[in-house]
Structure formats: C-alpha cells, structure tokens
C-alpha cells in the first residue's frame, strides 16, 4: 500500500469500520492524506489519483506557513 497522493510507502491505519471488515481509514505519514478504503479509485489508488492533487516532498517543504509564526516577544 502506498499513498495515492504522494506515493510514500508508510501508511497508518487510523481506524476501522464499526461493522468489522467493511473499510479502514488510512493515513500517509508523510503528506497526512487520509482516505477510506471504500472510496472511489480516484481517491484511493495512486494510478487513478488526479495529477493536480498529487504532492511531493518538495511541495511539502516549500509549503508556505499560514499564518506566519510571529517573532517571540522577549521580556
């Protein structure tokens, strides 16, 4: 299992369906993308994931801070 959005290979199981075995909610540890395994392929499979929403490590590193962390006020 790789992340559909950033292709990272470490994915956590966040929760599982209250009815056993129906779905899991997974999350990429790198880009934090979260998805349910029963969602359509366009949200769950790397090859079907839309190009415009894909993310890379460089995108994450370059992401601006909103809002910017202000300088610490001393004294």
């Amino acid at each position: 299992m790789i992340c559909p959005r950033c292709a990272h290979d470490t994915v956590d199981t966040v929760t599982t369906s209250p009815v056993p075995g129906v779905w899991d909610v997974l999350q990429c540890v790198r880009c934090l993308y979260m998805w349910r395994t029963t969602e359509p392929d366009r949200r769950t499979r790397r090859e079907a994931y839309p190009v415009e929403f894909r993310m890379t490590q460089a995108d994450i590193d370059a992401a601006p801070e909103v809002p910017v962390v202000p300088p610490l006020r001393v004294g």
Partner: peptide, 19 residues
C-alpha cells in the same frame, strides 16, 4: 480520545486532503 468513535467522519470533495 478518538474522534472517530464519536463522529462518523467523511470526505466532501475529491481533492480534499482528508475529513
């Protein structure tokens, strides 16, 4: 604490990063 136990969370739009 487990928000998923309290709320049936779900995604809205295709490109949303999560719930």
């Amino acid at each position: 604490i487990d928000l998923f136990e309290v709320l049936p969370l779900f995604r809205l739009n295709d490109g949303d990063g999560g719930f």
